[in-house]
Design a binder for these strands. Structure first.
Lengths: 116, 116
DNA sequence: CGGTATCCAAGAAGATACTG
DNA sequence: CAGTATCTTCTTGGATACCG
């Protein structure tokens, strides 16, 4: 296990760990939820994601999707149609986050107060 | 694996999953990093945490620690001394998050660009 | 030492209108 | 349909001063 206690973590050293790198890519109010959503639902269109996310604005969803696309965690496929048709799905890099998403999901299922 | 595709996720239903419950407890700019820090370093005092976190203000650290304490993810032990002496460490509930923390750490180690 | 209280600035996010 | 642009609002977070 990688969590034996170490007393050697120096100031500012935390920011050099893989831990912080992961956070830099998935932190943000909606990013992780979008990744989770796509991990469950597969390929989804812009407005399908928006509806499932509930109270999210166009702008915030656009920002989150662009950030995830720039980090190559999801792929964006635009069909040359009128009206426009854009689909998002997890990239292979995004799919490599599944262990993280699963761990988060499992913890919540077993620790939320009103668990079934 | 809990990530077979399901097409049954309805609008607003995402917020009822264990996934969202986990996020509600660990989201925030510093919470996860503090949990990770304590998972590595064990018991730490307020200013030790502050130094390791680098650029964090008293107020933000106080807020994060109080939030984590209220959610019973860490414990706060105050020694009746002058000057004050307060120690923080993961609670058993907090330790149950170790799989999540480990997953985040492992992904970062294997995916950050400058990984050795 | 380990906070709290106050004020202020910066960034995130919502609402709305408009576009290809 | 899937955005962009703009404006406004609101939440976070930082700086500072003070307290037990």
């Amino acid at each position: 296990m990688s969590n034996e206690f170490k007393d050697c973590l120096l100031p500012a050293e935390l920011s050099q760990t893989g831990f912080s790198y992961t956070l830099s890519e998935i932190s943000g109010k909606y990013k992780i939820e979008i990744l989770y959503l796509l991990s469950i639902q597969g390929t989804r269109r812009f407005n399908e994601i928006k509806r499932t996310m509930g109270a999210i604005s166009f702008k915030s969803l656009t920002n989150a999707l662009q950030g995830l696309t720039n980090d190559h965690l999801i792929t964006r496929h635009q069909f040359p149609e009128i009206p426009p048709h854009v689909e998002y799905q997890l990239s292979s890099r995004g799919k490599s986050l599944l262990p993280v998403l699963d761990a988060i999901c499992l913890w919540g299922e077993s620790h939320q107060p009103s668990a079934e």
